[in-house]
Amino acid sequence: MNDGTTRRKLIKRALGASALAFAGGVGAVLARRYGLIPPDSGGLYGIGETLTYASQRVLLSRQNFAREFSRSQISKNFRGFGTVMPDYEPYFFSMIQGFSDWRLVVDGLVTKRVRLSLSEIKQLPSRTQVTEHICEEGWSAIAEWTGAPLSSVLNAAGVRPEARYVLFVCVDRHWGSLDMADALHPQTLLAYRMNGQDLPVAHGAPVRLRVERQLGYKSLKYVGRITVTDTLKGIGKGLGGSDPDAGYSWYAGI
């Protein structure tokens, strides 16, 4: 091989590598610009988390609904799972009063901070849906949920345009977050009824989240406070929730 072909080969390779690096750089900037990077994009598994989140964000639109079932398919023995009674004294006293003194706080990047009572939430337009709760462990069960779409609660507070995530803090010390696409989806509810009854304590009374296009652990129970934010950095490990902090994916659409 003479020097000419070697040089040509080298130049070709350098050009190829630069093109690849450029494409990667443009891709990263675009992904960030269009909100395709999840908060847990770093670390060993970050590439997989990012590919999954980005591809589902591209594929899923507001029109894509989780499957809904008929009432006859409701599971007979769907008992509560995880926390079934929060270990928190003020919760207990509120519970025995039928949650009459309970208030849901909505704050952060909103035009006005609001505090809603359970009856105020029940006065908002409601949605009823029979959906399948799919647990990451492998089990699944169908139930009917009634609640106020989270979007109507957020609209009552007025979400500011720089909002990117909605953060949920729960009485049982769990916390988590959703991006705006899932937070504003019509099936995302603050549910207060299950199978036609008041939401049982074991299922997150008085109000739990329903996020039907993700796995069960994103549907947090005992929601107490909702904070609209533009960043998840500095909260816990910055991964967007207590489950991600414990090693679970932030985005659970798979």
């Binding site: 598994y45 008992r79 069960a141």
Partner: peptide, 27 residues
């Protein structure tokens, strides 16, 4: 469609249940 504790299962695999491995497992 569904499968929950107490529902009739098709097969119970001879494995010791361990819920602590699914976080890293899934990732």
């Amino acid at each position: 469609e569904t499968g929950f504790f107490g529902d009739p299962s098709l097969i119970n695999l001879p494995m010791a249940q361990n819920e602590a491995q699914s976080g890293w497992g899934r990732s």
